[in-house]
Amino acid sequence: MQRFLIRVALLGLVAVAAGLWITRPKADGAEVLAGLTADAGRGEMVFTAAGCASCHMAPEAEGEARLVLAGGQSFPSPFGSFTAPNISPDPAEGIGDWSALELWNALHHGTSPDGQHYYPAFPYASYIRMEPQAVVDLHAYLQTLPADATPSAPHAVPFPFNIRASLGGWKMLFLRPGWVMAGDLTAEEARGRVLAEAMGHCAECHSPRNALGGTKTGADWLTGAPNPAGRGSFPNLTPPALDWSQDELVEYFTSGFTPEYDVVGGHMAHVVENLAQLPESDRAAIAAYLKRLPLDG
C-alpha cells in the first residue's frame, strides 16, 4: 500500500513537472528579427495605434506628459487589480536596457526578459498578431521617449491568480497568433484588421470573455462586454447593433463626436486621442473592418 502511494505521488510530481514544462514561458531567438532595420518614425505610428501611452502614462497625465511612461494606473478586474509598470527608457526602473528581441517576446509571448509570464492585462493576446517589423520600429521609438525613475508598483492580485505559472495554461488555451476575421478582405479591411485586432486591441474591452478570462471569438467577437472594473459596459461593435455609417465612425475616431453629438468619454477618450493622430485612411480602415462584422459562429 505504501509503495502504491509513493508511486502515485511520484506520478503526480511527474505530471506537474510535465505541465510546467509544457506551459513554460516561451521566447523566440534572434532569427525572428534578423535583417530588419528599425525606423523610429514608423515606430511612433505603431506606438500611437497600439495605445501604449494610454495605459503606461502616469495617472491623469495630459499633453506631453503622456509620453512619460512611468506607469502607475491601476486596472481592476475580477482576478485582482493590475498596475501598469514603468516602460520608460530608464535602464533600472523602466525598459531602457531591453533589446528589440526582448520587446518582441513580451508583446508576442507575454514573456519577460527574465523568463516570467506576464498577466494578460498587458494585451499580448492582441499584440501577438503584430509583425516583427512593427515591433522593431516600436522598440526604436520607445528609446526616444523621456526616461523616468519611478519604480513600478506591484499588482494586487490574490491567490490563486498570483501563481504566475498558471498563466502558461491560460496562454495555451487562449493565445492565438492568427487573425480572427478570416476570408477575403479588401486592402482597406485588411489594414483595419491590423489596427483593430493587433495594435488597437479593441477586443480586450469590446469582446465578452469566458469564465477564465479568455476572449470569446467567432459570433461573439466584439459584441460588447461588461466593464471588468465594475461599472457600466463596453458597447457592441457589430452591425446591426452598430448602426453608424463609415463616415460617422471616422468622425467619432477623429473628434469624439457621436452621430447624436454626444462626446466620447472614459478610456475610449484616450483611444480617440490616439486614433485622431493616425492618418485618416487608418481611421477609415478600422471603420471598414467593423462594418464587415459580425463574424460567423
Binding site: G232, S233, S255, V264, G265, H267, M268, A269, H270
Partner: peptide, 20 residues
C-alpha cells in the same frame, strides 16, 4: 472652434462618466 468645444465636453466625460 468645434474641436476645443468637443474637447471641453470630453474632458469631463473622460474622467467622470461610466462607460456606455
Amino acid at each position: 472652434a468645434m474641436g476645443p468645444l468637443g474637447g471641453a465636453c470630453g474632458a469631463c466625460h473622460k474622467a467622470y462618466r461610466v462607460p456606455d
